[in-house]
Design a protein around this nucleic acid. Sequence first.
DNA 1: TCCTCCTAGTCAGAATGATGACTAATCATA
DNA 2: TATGATTAGTCATCATTCTGACTAGGAGGA
Lengths: 197, 197
Amino acid sequence: MSLRHAVLAALLSGEYSGYQLTKAFDVGVANFWYARPQQLYLELSKLESDGLISGREVVQQSRPNKRLFMVTDAGLAELERFAAAVSKPSFIRDDLLVKVQAVDHVDVAPVIAQLDQRAAAAAAKVEILDKILRRFRGDLDEETYLRHGSPIGPYLTCLRGRLFEQEHHDWSVRAAALLRDRATRNGDPPPVSDQSR
Amino acid sequence: MSLRHAVLAALLSGEYSGYQLTKAFDVGVANFWYARPQQLYLELSKLESDGLISGREVVQQSRPNKRLFMVTDAGLAELERFAAAVSKPSFIRDDLLVKVQAVDHVDVAPVIAQLDQRAAAAAAKVEILDKILRRFRGDLDEETYLRHGSPIGPYLTCLRGRLFEQEHHDWSVRAAALLRDRATRNGDPPPVSDQSR
DNA sequence: TCCTCCTAGTCAGAATGATGACTAATCATA
DNA sequence: TATGATTAGTCATCATTCTGACTAGGAGGA
């Protein structure tokens, strides 16, 4: 039951509408959780009926009205409780890794193509996260921000996301190059990933 | 539906019993997926009734009998299909990150304690994975193994797991040190994580 | 001899997450 | 003046994962 707490934690940074949250969570900018719009809307209404957040209607002209949510005292207490409870161990769970695991026994070409895609996607995310980190820092350098800046929580999770994506990128590039090299040397048609496939 | 394929991919390395698989998956040595024993046993019986793996009874004296499973041709075909299909994007989903995200608003001490624990756990995993990698390599150096060694799939996923744990460790250590430093400077009782809390 | 751990596996059901199909108004653009 | 994109959100249902509780025999140590 952690989407619940992820949403609560996200709402600490200020008031958001469901739609704004989906933007943060869906694009995957959410560096500490991930969820689809439908899940978020559902969770928001559950949180509200449990009294952990409260929403207020904002009437907009030229846009559909929206509801902005903020964490209540009860919500903060719940987060406090959650933060002090033991965490589940974290682990990787990745489709593509399963495919790489099987690569000695199945056709490598599509796996290499997917590694290429992943590398590109990870590089794009690194850039996005860098932008967000710069926005947090303002004109402070990273050392100074880490020592004195605020908020520190979102900055740290963002940093973690950035490191993860960077490493994900580097590994993907390396794995793709390696598998390509091995496939070529084995006399298979060199699997070059381009638009034509 | 990827536990299915994770199990198939794991069984490519040889025959395993359910119990052996649980050891690999549960300890988290599984660098590409993670699952509990109950899930694995259930998945194994589903895979068998779908004809993707076949099991044979091995009678043991002084131990309960066990069933060893191997991937069938149909199973291999299924993996082939899976490997060529599009992958879901990967993302981090971590309780502890949610807590760190909220750290500007909740008590830091328990979060710091959990970061310490995480760092230790990650360091332990790095060692385990290094051992496994060395066993794969034998007396080859890494460059040579990556170019010519076999199997390459499990080696690459293991390498990925190792990089992930290393980075997880480094980030946890850094985050814990930082939060501790900030808490101390703010005049709070310095949160040192020891056995007494 | 008792107690606990290890091997080996099973069952049922709760919790959580993912998916497809909708509504409805406005804005920009061709 | 259509057409598609964007904002804003809802509903029902399916799929997947997680959890607790349970069985059963042998090994090893106090």
